[in-house]
């Protein structure tokens, strides 16, 4: 069972790299924000799986705080792009 969690974490890491490709080439600023948001979601999923793989429940608390803080970051960047800040 643990091997399967490891494979899932490895695939998520690979997907983060692919999303980072869009972050690098994205022609406009909103494209980059979309890629960043994808990476945040994938990192939260990866943290939940890592908590199971390593047997450390505290990682899930980190994932909750990371999700809320990344939301704040997304909102702040969007306000800046939209010219309301």
């Amino acid at each position: 069972m643990n091997d399967i969690f490891f494979i899932a974490i490895a695939v998520l890491g690979l997907l983060i790299l692919f999303a980072a490709l869009r972050l690098a080439i994205g022609p406009t600023a909103p494209d980059r924000v979309v890629a960043l948001d994808t990476i945040n979601t994938l990192v939260v999923g990866g943290m939940i799986l890592l908590a199971v793989y390593l047997g450390q429940t505290i990682f899930v608390d980190v994932a909750i705080v990371y999700a809320l803080l990344s939301f704040l970051g997304t909102i702040a960047i969007s306000k800046y792009i939209g010219g309301e800040l």
Binding site: T74, I75, S78, I81, G82, G83
Partner: peptide, 16 residues
């Protein structure tokens, strides 16, 4: 947060 955040990005993209 994902749904609300994507709403914010879409609004910002249209405003920009």
């Amino acid at each position: 947060t994902n749904a609300t955040g994507s709403h914010a990005i879409a609004r910002a993209a249209h405003r920009s």
